[in-house]
């Protein structure tokens, strides 16, 4: 099924000059990942008074980083510079 996924690079939105749906997915994952990492760094520097359960695991930092990396990969792979080629 990976072939199908890869094949959708340009054809998820088939018209030339059009942005792929995967580009928008990358924008949303990357944008949210960045904001969450920044929030995680802030809470590291200035810990909140009411901490969530398992605060010590700093889920915001590593989960935000995972989303950010995925977002960058999708934007780089499916951005307008790729779909127009």
């Amino acid at each position: 099924m990976n072939d199908t996924h890869a094949a959708s690079t340009a054809s998820a939105s088939s018209n030339e000059q059009s942005l792929s749906i995967w580009f928008f997915v990358g924008v949303t994952l990357g944008g949210n990942g960045l904001l969450i990492v920044l929030a995680g760094l802030y809470s590291l520097v200035s810990p909140p008074e009411n901490k969530v359960v398992l605060y010590n695991l700093h889920a915001d930092l590593w989960w935000g980083a995972v989303l950010l990396v995925l977002g960058i990969i999708y934007v780089w792979r499916f951005g307008p510079w790729r779909t127009q080629t």
Partner: peptide, 15 residues
């Protein structure tokens, strides 16, 4: 969600 997610993650869950 509120139990485990602080600022940022909470916003993402709500979104």
């Amino acid at each position: 969600l509120a139990r485990y997610c602080g600022p940022g993650l909470l916003g993402l869950g709500i979104t």
